[in-house]
Design a protein around this nucleic acid. Structure first.
Lengths: 238, 238
DNA sequence: CGGCTGGTTGATTGGTTTCAACAAGCGTGG
DNA sequence: CCACGCTTGTTGAAACCAATCAACCAGCCG
């Protein structure tokens, strides 16, 4: 899963892939709507999402919540928080989540052995930052319907990168409250905008499942340009 | 300037500081409102802002602009864009800007010689990502006046970290259009919100200069918690 | 059968944008 | 020197988008 995703950034050899699989540590499980705590045991360890969805979010004293990013299978979960003294946000499980830890020693060994892997990890970090910037663009300058459309484009593309789509369909295990907190709106307004978006015929959404009927049309509505995801064209094709 | 800032993350020795100064390359100058282009000469080189303000921004075909971050003196200007195939945003000069380049070889030498410097650079990257997340929080969940207040808190704190404040005052060379494009609003509304904020007596803003009369009050209004900047308390005190 | 969560709807309020016009400051060139 | 254009800031009125408040429905589960 992680391997699958890294292949989107850099072409990896069979050896790279085997070695990567070797270094995946023990699994940890988290329930829906619980926080994924990071005790500061190994500051250089990295957690990988094996299964389920999580999100980074900030909570205000008065109850306002802003989700600043979704963590999908294959995503690295916390590189940030450790080297820094204090946590500036939380990570919560949106669905049941399975995590695996790669120790700091393993990361060091992996990147020392293979420059391809080192580059892949580095690009992963940069791509994550690019996604974060794109969220600011959405929140600042996209209309309600454009935001929804853009988020769906992004999630479908990221899920496709780890093989979790079925052609035009993918799971979207988010409530309308989650969508609202990610897109900076109220769930009531998300509900109405969702109806408007369904009304265009570009997508169907129901039962935690999204189907995109007209990918080009949706991308155009959303002003979605996948360049910011920084998946290379040649690398990672199955 | 860069040294000054890195000291906010990690305490550096005299040797570290001298070596860092040694590796600053030749200077380049940019006019206001021009783009800071990055030709792909040395993919591992890093540009440092020595003087002036710049911003990262995205432009839509229909003219909408979203500024996703400000680059102040001491900030690293582009680590991102190079390793990635294509640019997903632009960097523009807000004022006249002076840049200095640290070659990839220099970075390698610096971080190999001093683990403190290596940690400082790494933390700088993580802190930048944290700032980016906080912008999403502002755009998504802060009201107009809170956004303005929060931006002023952040800019003052970041300028203070590089010695560019005079107690409660600092330069803010931004037009109301710049503020609008950073905070996801129209310049007309920024104008009115600014009047409201001035009306509280918490700040004065005029002649490209900000004075904070009540830092605690402003921080409270903005829900500003400087933790996300990840300046350590003990490191970097003058 | 409750009780819960998540989704839906309507009416009202309020915050923001839009459009349009105008004032102040500043550099340039006639 | 003053006129002119240009940028930046300011103001008002109208239109619009989104939040709020409140109620209700459907599905799920113990």
């Amino acid at each position: 899963m992680l391997a699958h995703k890294l292949q989107r950034f850099v072409r990896l050899s069979q050896d790279d892939l085997l070695e990567l699989a070797d270094h995946l540590g023990c699994r940890r499980f988290f329930d829906t709507r619980t926080d994924i705590i990071e005790s500061g045991d190994d500051p250089h360890a990295v957690n990988v999402v094996l299964d389920g969805w999580a999100c980074r979010y900030r909570l205000f004293a008065d109850g306002r919540r802003q989700i600043v990013g979704f963590l999908l299978p294959g995503d690295l979960c916390d590189p940030h928080v450790f080297l820094l003294d204090r946590m500036d946000h939380s990570i919560g499980a949106v669905t049941p989540v399975v995590l695996s830890q790669i120790s700091g020693a393993s990361i060091k060994a992996l990147t020392a052995h293979s420059s391809a892997l080192a580059r892949a990890f580095h690009r992963e970090t940069l791509a994550t930052a690019a996604v974060q910037r794109e969220w600011a663009v959405s929140l600042g300058r996209r209309s309600a319907i454009e935001r929804l459309a853009h988020l769906f484009c992004e999630l479908h593309a990221r899920l496709a990168a780890v093989g979790l789509t079925e052609s035009a369909s993918c799971p979207i295990p988010l409530t309308q409250v989650d969508l609202a907190d990610a897109l900076g709106q109220t769930s009531v307004h998300i509900n109405r905008t969702l109806q408007e978006l369904r009304g265009t015929g570009l997508i169907s959404l129901g039962g935690r499942h999204l189907t995109i009927h007209d990918a080009d049309g949706l991308a155009q509505l959303a002003h979605f340009d996948p360049v910011y995801l920084h998946f290379t064209e040649e690398a990672g094709r199955p």
